[in-house]
Amino acid sequence: MYKGKRILATISARGGSKGVPGKNIRDLGGLPLVAWTIREARRSGMIDRLIVSSDDEGILAVARSHGAETPFVRPAELARDDTPGVDPVLHAVAALLPETYDYVVLLQPTSPLRTVADIDGAIAACLDGGHPCVLSVTEADKSPYFMFTLEDDKRLSPVIAQERYHTRRQDLPRVFMPNGAVYVADCAWLAQTRSYLTPQTRGYEMPRERSQDVDGLLDFDICELLLRKAGRIA
């Protein structure tokens, strides 16, 4: 609980990964991928309850073995490739009724480098600022001000219209992109908007070294290297 508000954290980990089969329970530095997120979430002093939402019994068993609750099996229709990310979150909130929460935090297992400081920092930014939603972002490594579309005649057309083209990155505005690590939202607001990205959404900046997303096998190697560099594994 934080500032008198009950906070639910849900880890969405479906079983149907096609790029890397069994991705969410694949070993990363001695722990299943999902366990890195469970471990940091359990360290939070702000989260009242931590659950894992999955359609896969293997993932649910691993989650329980690492200290997360698995109060339900996610319906198959909410575990498809085209399922919007907000739908399993709203399902989790509804599935726990009559127990209610003021805020829900979505933590994706594919962001294993995020720490409890990032989780609590995003929660505090949301509640302290009186915002309905805060999501974690990181500075983009490539500026869209340097990006172009290639027209049929091979003409370069800038993605962002500019009066003059800048040649130095230092002269450009900083730009950010969601990194998928932490989503914090007011439960009632999220049920109404069914989207995290609205004009009311605010960003919580995270460093690049904790913003790596696990999509393919190479990402496992990169994350393990970064975890070792940070001293989080031997």
Rank of each mutant, 00 (worst) to 15 (best):
Y101W: 08
Y101M: 06
Y101E: 02
Y101I: 01
D102V: 00
D102C: 01
D102R: 06
Y103S: 04
V104E: 04
V105E: 08
V105D: 09
V105Q: 09
L106T: 04
L107H: 07
L107W: 03
L107D: 01
P109D: 02
T110W: 08
T110L: 07
S111Y: 02
S111D: 00
S111V: 04
S111K: 05
P112K: 05
P112H: 10
P112A: 06
P112V: 01
L113H: 00
L113W: 01
R114M: 15
R114D: 04
T115I: 04
T115W: 02
T115P: 01
T115F: 01
V116T: 06
V116S: 05
A117R: 15
A117M: 14
D118L: 10
D118E: 14
D118A: 15
I119W: 10
D120M: 05
D120G: 03
D120N: 13
G121E: 10
G121T: 11
G121N: 10
G121F: 12
A122Q: 04
A122W: 02
A122N: 02
A122L: 09
I123F: 11
I123E: 07
A124T: 12
A124H: 11
A125L: 12
A125M: 12
A125T: 11
A125I: 09
C126W: 04
L127I: 15
L127H: 13
L127M: 13
L127W: 11
L127E: 12
D128T: 14
D128N: 15
D128P: 11
G129H: 07
G129T: 05
G129N: 00
G129E: 08
G129D: 05
G130D: 04
G130R: 09
H131M: 07
H131K: 02
H131A: 09
H131D: 03
H131L: 08
H131W: 10
H131G: 00
P132Q: 14
P132K: 14
P132F: 12
P132T: 14
P132G: 15
P132A: 14
C133E: 03
V134Q: 06
V134Y: 08
V134D: 01
L135P: 00
L135I: 09
S136M: 06
S136T: 13
S136V: 05
S136N: 03
S136C: 08
V137A: 11
V137P: 01
T138W: 05
T138F: 04
E139F: 03
A140M: 13
D141A: 10
D141Q: 10
D141F: 08
K142R: 13
K142M: 07
P144V: 13
P144D: 09
P144Q: 05
Y145S: 05
F146Y: 07
F146K: 12
M147N: 10
M147R: 11
M147W: 01
M147C: 11
F148D: 14
F148N: 15
F148G: 02
F148H: 15
T149G: 14
T149W: 13
T149Y: 13
T149M: 13
L150G: 01
L150A: 08
L150T: 12
E151W: 10
D152N: 00
D153E: 13
D153L: 14
D153R: 14
K154H: 15
K154W: 15
K154C: 15
K154Y: 15
R155E: 12
R155D: 03
R155A: 09
L156M: 12
L156W: 08
L156N: 03
L156Y: 07
S157C: 02
S157A: 13
S157G: 02
P158T: 06
P158I: 07
P158A: 03
P158H: 09
